[in-house]
Write a protein that binds this DNA or RNA. Sequence first.
DNA 1: CCAAAAGTGTTTAAAATACACCCATGC
DNA 2: GCATGGGTGTATTTTAAACACTTTTGG
Lengths: 265, 265
Amino acid sequence: MCPGTLLLYMNFDKEIIEHYLKGHEKYLRHISVDCIIFGFHNNELKVLLLYARYAQLWALPGGFIKKEEHMDEAAKRILKERTGLNEIYMQQFHVFSAPERSTKKINSQFLKNVGVKAKESWMFERFITVGYSALVDFSKVEPVADVFSSACEWFNIHDIPDMLLDHGDILNKALENLQLQLNYHPVGYNLLPEKFTMPELQKLYETILDKKLDRRNFQRKIVGNGILKRLNETKKGVAHKAPYYYKFDLRKYQKALKGGMGFEL
Amino acid sequence: MCPGTLLLYMNFDKEIIEHYLKGHEKYLRHISVDCIIFGFHNNELKVLLLYARYAQLWALPGGFIKKEEHMDEAAKRILKERTGLNEIYMQQFHVFSAPERSTKKINSQFLKNVGVKAKESWMFERFITVGYSALVDFSKVEPVADVFSSACEWFNIHDIPDMLLDHGDILNKALENLQLQLNYHPVGYNLLPEKFTMPELQKLYETILDKKLDRRNFQRKIVGNGILKRLNETKKGVAHKAPYYYKFDLRKYQKALKGGMGFEL
DNA sequence: CCAAAAGTGTTTAAAATACACCCATGC
DNA sequence: GCATGGGTGTATTTTAAACACTTTTGG
């Protein structure tokens, strides 16, 4: 542990200790929520991770459900705290419940390190976690770490570090889920800025599906189901023919969301 | 309440009271599992329900997760107890977490009725429930009620009674999920007996999707992806041309399960 | 021998795929 | 003026949908 670390802990001690000793008065026991926050930037699919100080490992942004709170609300709250965004597109995708997924050792060691002697804590108990998958506009996110974390950063989906517990598995499952989603729902609206070019949209699909798509057929298919509106505006400052900007036709987009659109490209 | 009811309660009192007062020593708090058990019989899609004595309403078969048990194991255990079957095809499909989904009133009234005064019980607390969807061979199931229930019966999917809490919603979500599944996975293996005829398989699909399919195109598609083996045996005693029996080619079936098969019929 | 339901094949329409040429821009 | 990447159209293959006739069986 580097020299400043222990001191840093001190600043957060009160809140953290309270969480370990009294969190169960506020939150449901045994249940947590973990979020996979996907973003798209520089033609790369990214995921927002936290560096958990107590475990010295990267981890998914997560949290707990308040005693009178809907789980979806808990997920929204967590997402807002890490990204600053309201109205995030998200959905639960899987529950992870292996009895051996526990941070008891890590957590009690951590408490010792910050000088607290606690034999029992709701945080030492078993947790079942519900995975939420969220799609956000990268450019609008301002990553904020939580009290348990010393960093909050984007990672390229192909460059994920070792992660806490089964968080790596959770992330993989989320990605798999996103790929499936893509076949049936339009996805770009949540991941792209309001205006975007066709090549950008295509790159998004290619990145998620992890395969190349034919430029012309892709365009035909996307334009064909009418969820896009082309703007009378082209991208500036490119060393070749300038692509048009597009934006989503919200009404038709929503409709396609419900009806499904059988994308297999 | 009919006259015999209270007496009937007595026989179960010990186990039930123990459950209310000490269940939290055995099970995780705040988390339950509810199962939607689908079967297919007489060309109808059926669901197995319990009549909950404490609520005097039909309810989904459900249960709780033991302190050191994987949630999937809990679901398997519950499924086995109600159906007698091991190795059931099942999967979680959604978590229901509205804070208002609570049986506190119903449960405490019930305890009063059986003569127990308990102000507190883990069973009065809020529960988040994980829905599991299961597909079973109707002919192999022997429905068994649990201690909280006075009946365990199959219901036609189009003839579902009023149900406890949000169980109706859970059932609808499960059905929706099953319809989606059908588009990407073969489904018959779990719902049909080993030998079955093409018209039976088609009826299964028609029942789940709730629409008519073209007999010839259906057959071509199903046979086309090679998951079936036709037997040299026809159905006996039908007043018309006898259909062949088929069975699933397990190897190819499993492969199709993974690869998906884009059924949209 | 006829009604009922199953087996099989063909024709047509739609969708996915593959592929080629022209256009605009910055260097 | 040329390399880069974007815009657009067409021909081909594959897949889905619609449809008709023949076969078997019990009554």
